[in-house]
């Protein structure tokens, strides 16, 4: 077991898992070293770091002897090009972060143009349910469904993927078994519920006028959601619910998460809900 940390800004780079993890959750986590820092974005290509930001981050990771891991989202053609430029820039400076892909096109980019980079299959590739309105039934050890995702893991293995990532979805097992040969990585405590391109934070920052939603896809975004997250209250679920940028997250009960932790090789703690 090892830990990773998903930080919001470099100011948080010296935190440890215990600094960001809820006590009720922490008691399910064994002692283990911090080995990786995660940056980038899993949910929005507008939040991919600028070249200098990424360079600073990789420098910091090297200084602390931590693995730098770049999170990437589902991207459009422009996002794919932007990511290519970012990875090229980092390579020119001697940085080769591991890359979490959530888009098969990004994997193709890694294989064709950035083959030296370690490839992690991201949590959006697990399309299992994360509906906070549904009950989470506790399962006994061995009750998880490792059959789910077996095909995609086999394919990923054949394509040089070294890690499979997920969050605490409703059916533990997507990460497979230790025998599959992947670093099984679990993201805590914020499980994503739903994401999309029509972003309330972007709309809130836009000038008042018609069409901020209907015209949203092709209007510019200055990433006003950076560092912002809001609680959302719904009548149909009691679970803590958060919105950050274009994505809704919930927090699963620690007792439920415990079983997921037992099935992981690396646990990545998120400092806050982040798109």
């Amino acid at each position: 077991m090892e830990y990773g940390l998903r930080i919001a800004t470099l100011e948080s780079a010296f935190k440890n898992p215990a600094d960001v993890c809820d006590a009720a959750l922490l008691k399910h986590c064994p002692d283990a070293p911090l080995t990786a820092l995660y940056f980038g974005s899993e949910f929005c290509q507008e939040l991919l770091p600028r070249n200098n930001e990424a360079n600073t981050f990789c420098t910091h990771c090297a200084t602390r002897n931590l693995q730098a891991v770049l999170l990437t989202p589902v991207v459009t053609g422009k996002g794919l090009k932007r990511l290519d430029r970012l990875l090229t820039s980092l390579a020119e400076r001697g940085w080769f972060p591991a890359v979490v892909f959530n888009d098969w096109g990004v994997l193709e980019l890694l294989r064709s143009k950035h083959a030296d980079l370690s490839r992690h299959m991201g949590r959006l590739m697990n399309r299992g349910l994360r509906d906070p309105r549904l009950n989470m039934q506790a399962i006994a050890p061995g009750g998880e469904n490792t059959e789910r995702g077996s095909g995609i893991r086999k394919l990923a293995s054949s394509l040089g993927v070294s890690a499979v990532e997920s969050d605490a979805d409703l059916e533990p097992g997507f990460l497979g078994t230790a025998n599959d040969g992947f670093t099984r990585t679990l993201h805590l405590p914020f499980t994503f519920v739903s994401s999309g391109r029509n972003c309330l934070e972007k709309a809130a920052a836009a000038s008042v006028g018609k069409g901020i939603f209907t015209q949203g896809l092709h209007s510019a975004c200055s990433a006003p959601c950076r560092g912002v997250y809001r609680q959302e209250i719904r009548q149909d679920t009691q679970k803590p619910l958060w919105r950050a940028g274009n994505t809704v997250f919930f927090e699963a009960p620690p007792a439920w998460i415990a079983r997921h932790i037992e099935l992981a090789d690396r646990v990545v703690f998120h400092e806050q809900p982040m798109p």
Partner: peptide, 18 residues
């Protein structure tokens, strides 16, 4: 669809989340 349907991990069986 309010969200991106492929990135919505809810189910309409429990009602339309969005």
């Amino acid at each position: 669809c309010v969200f991106e349907e492929g990135l919505c991990a809810t189910t309409h069986q429990a009602g339309t989340f969005c």
